[in-house]
Design a protein around this nucleic acid. Structure first.
Lengths: 120, 120
DNA sequence: GCGTGTTGTATCCATTTGGATAGCACTCGG
DNA sequence: CCGAGTGCTATCCAAATGGATACAACACGC
């Protein structure tokens, strides 16, 4: 068995399996920008800046969003550690979303970006 | 002629033509984030931070980028006013890309984002 | 058991988009 | 006239993705 050849092959596979990683960027900044660049994500954070909101309230604020996409975005934001999900106790069931500390600090940067965008 | 009805119709069209604007977000921040979230864009800015670069140099630095996509991105960055294109005089022809003032100030914010990404 | 209110999930699809590949434009030296 | 070097453009395509639409889960009062 040609070990060298096998290793070469494995290495080649390891490399070739990832040439079109479809955004497996090694740069964390680019990764975060890609995430924030997804529609609704930044907007959700911006709305939550003013305080926690329920799912239904977000549906009304984000004009045009569909349930599927909103749920998907909220889930991703939670996974990213930017928002927290809190389940209500009463009836009907409610779910409230709020910024985490990390989310708040990120929004600070987005605010800087907003200022930049407005500046000459 | 029913002016009211016509106006209503026009307004309805103006609204209905845009229900799935495919990212015609009214929020400038979201617009910029979508732009920066496009693959390579932020990376190009980051590389140009160190100084102007030629097209071929960028091709080498951005491993995996195709000519079409790189040209498209550079064009978009130029249109956005973030980079400038300077044509060389000698032979063979050269094109050099550099950050504009606006590009530099944006990279400052991206640096803040990088710090944030690294932070706890 | 049935309607109501809230928060989602399931399924399917048109459109967009990054990428692969090939080729073109321009200028110079020989 | 032809090849070399640099900077792109042209064409086509598979894959991802946002969206439309319908429906499901849950708990409660009546």
């Amino acid at each position: 068995m040609d070990t060298t050849r096998l290793l070469t092959h494995e290495i080649a596979n390891a490399v070739l399996d990832a040439p079109a990683p479809l955004h497996a960027s090694e740069c964390p900044v680019e990764k975060w920008l890609a995430f924030l660049g997804h529609r609704w994500n930044a907007l959700i954070l911006w709305h939550l800046k003013a305080g926690p909101l329920r799912y239904g309230q977000l549906t009304e604020l984000l004009v045009g969003v569909t349930p599927k996409v909103l749920a998907e975005r909220l889930s991703a934001l939670e996974d990213a550690g930017l928002v927290s999900r809190r389940l209500g106790l009463g009836f009907p069931r409610t779910t409230t979303y709020a910024l985490t500390g990390r989310g708040v600090s990120l929004v600070t940067i987005l605010d800087a970006l907003e200022l930049w965008a407005k500046g000459n």
